[in-house]
Design a protein around this nucleic acid. Structure first.
Lengths: 371, 371
DNA sequence: GAAAGTTCCGAAACCGGTTTCGGCAAGTAG
DNA sequence: CTACTTGCCGAAACCGGTTTCGGAACTTTC
């Protein structure tokens, strides 16, 4: 009787097909159906097939929430993005999201996204999402050398993976692009082109990638037998404006660099402006090699030579790592690195002018501006 | 006994605080706690306060999934992004997502994001998310004049709101920016500056906004007493390359336009390239007014005049609308429009050259290229 | 002072799944 | 022929909540 009533009701409401519908259709109990669908060993193959077939024809899809309250697993990946003013427009987001969500979707998982406006906000959102169990674990983008998110998640024992490395790596899983190798290669490449004064525009040292790139720059100098000169390293630059300012300052020295290695493309594009101001042609008078691979760099004149990071791929790999982590794999076994790819375009070339010649041109330009 | 056993067990496992913990702490049943927290009228104020206080001090947070299986409401907003190659890098995404997720978060909701690679993929993901109940409703970005997503969601009776309008608006709620008014205003503005040959670079007509902007362009011409000339409307252009090609074609006519109205900023930036090729100065020889408000436009020379859409605000308002819709409001009562804001920069100005003078310059440039 | 109405909470069903436990039937060993 | 295993499934508890229902205690009404 109850079966019939249930059928009628669900027909009337045009409701979702539940596990009970499948069970009563087959004259079995829902426990059998559940175990059949979840490949329990105590279900015979014939029953398993019948259940599978019935579930398919009835269009049964288990309700993720209902599963989650018993299994404790929602199959949802959490992502809290901190969108500061300087990277609200960062072009990576779409690729990163696409990589994550497509890998997740292929594995039958979904992605829960939140955006935060501050560090505290980020921690609050992570905590909320975890407590309400809207996510089984998190991908942490833009890792810091000392990262409060990592502290928090480690303490509360919530699974996570890092996009980037960090200062205290205990218990951390990560994927990262070896940006330090890119910076090192950039220096070597410029050295091979004859450059001997190679400047560096760093990022903020709180970010791990910025630290690593600086180390890579130093390693490159060492490998080429060049001395490290603090005067060739500017203040941090994250955007076009800051890139222009720091490049201008680097170039206005007595013995300016003939080439620049930049931490981020946007700063490099700023350096174009500085070069322009001094009447220097990028690619011949001044070589620039950067890192990121944003689309905008392609449209500069000359197009920007850069080490490009495959952000969509990073998203995919992070997703796979996180799922493994949630399924219990040890974090130490979940650490992957991948190189950036060198995109040679027009902003680097053989050294043309000596630092002294550059200094002359620049000081004249600077005096003209003063008048 | 059972209460004690439960306490011990939860203490051992260091587990989540459940509603039972709160209830046993107060010596009440969980049903009372639930109703107290959900403001049922049959709970006395004193009990309500005691429950609230206990829940707070114990750090109880109801499990969204568990709530959802009974209430049918997960408090999750679904968003399926279709990232075609030409807008993978679109800069709006971060703002849009920030607007949505911050409004959602403030209301105690979360956001589930998926990315699709094709129309079919989009429908598949919408269906999956709805069937597994990972979202209570959807925000549909980039609405089409004939939109299969709308058909699907309308048929299956799943709540949704549109970012943009559509051809068959029955049962649809939406927020949109009046881009037709922007296009009309752009024409009027150029007319007031003396322009009489005003070209138009449209988007793809499958998008509602592109249709509306074309209508706005025509309405503007009419309001100014100018005749509509099909020769002044190019093929669709969505990116820099296409913008350059279509602008080049528009300008290469016998009687070229002295001003261009563009559907999207990226096409407008492409038009800069065409102007450059012909030796025309944007802002004086050729006026350009566009629509979008992307950051890149600010860095062109001259900076691009455009109608800027506040995408973060759109995300917020769509979120509020969708929540109301999910709570049962009639879609017809959930329709909002908002104007784009005019950002006057350097790419438009009084007409300087007659179409005939422009044609001379351009034909010379074209012949030089041929040689 | 009894009947009727309120106020407020406990008991239990329910949501849609998962998982444990126990037992029936068939097969195998002694 | 009995005893013991094994394969397979049903019954029921369980997950963490929500919601319905009924009834005790207290107030009001006549």
């Amino acid at each position: 009787m109850e079966t019939r009533a249930h059928k009628v009701r669900s027909a009337l409401r045009r409701q979702r097909v539940t596990i009970n519908d499948v069970a009563s259709e087959l004259g079995m109990t829902k426990s059998t159906v559940s175990r059949a669908l979840n490949d329990y060993p105590d279900i015979s193959d014939s029953t398993r097939l019948r259940v599978r077939e019935a579930a398919r024809t009835l269009g049964y899809r288990p309700l993720a929430n209902a599963q989650a309250i018993r299994t404790g697993r929602l199959r949802a990946i959490g992502l809290v993005l901190q969108l500061n003013e300087h990277d609200r427009h960062r072009p990576f987001l779409a690729d990163f999201l696409a990589g994550i969500s497509q890998a997740a979707s292929a594995a039958g998982w979904t992605v829960t996204v939140s955006t935060a406006t501050s560090d505290e906000d980020t921690l609050r959102l992570l905590s909320n999402l975890a407590q309400e169990h809207k996510a089984d674990g998190f991908i942490l983008p833009r890792t810091l050398w000392q990262d409060p998110r990592i502290e928090f998640l480690r303490e509360t024992d919530i699974p996570f993976v890092l996009y980037g490395r960090t200062g205290k790596p205990d218990g951390c899983a990560w994927f990262d692009i070896t940006s330090e190798a890119a910076a090192e290669d950039a220096v070597k490449c410029l050295y091979d082109l004859g450059h001997r004064r190679i400047g560096f525009i760093p990022g903020e040292m709180k970010y791990t990638h910025a630290r690593l790139k600086l180390e890579g720059y130093k390693a490159g100098l060492k490998a080429c037998g060049l001395a490290y000169d603090p005067d060739l390293v500017s203040a941090a630059a994250l955007n076009r404006r800051q890139g222009a300012a720091t490049a201008e300052q680097l170039l206005s020295q007595r013995c300016p660099p003939t080439a620049l290695v930049c931490t981020v493309d946007r700063a490099a594009i700023g350096a174009y402006l500085a070069a322009d101001r001094f009447g220097l042609k990028v690619g011949s008078d001044l070589s620039i090699i950067s890192y990121d691979g944003i689309e905008e760099g392609e449209y500069q004149t000359p197009p920007l030579t850069t080490f490009s990071a495959n952000v969509a791929d990073a998203g995919e790999r992070l997703t796979h790592l996180l799922i493994k982590r949630i399924n219990g794999a040890a974090p130490e076994s979940l650490r992957e690195l991948s190189p950036a790819s060198f995109v040679a375009r027009g902003s680097h070339g053989p050294v043309r002018k000596t630092p002294a010649e550059l200094a002359d041109i620049i000081s004249i330009a600077n005096h003209q501006v003063e008048e």
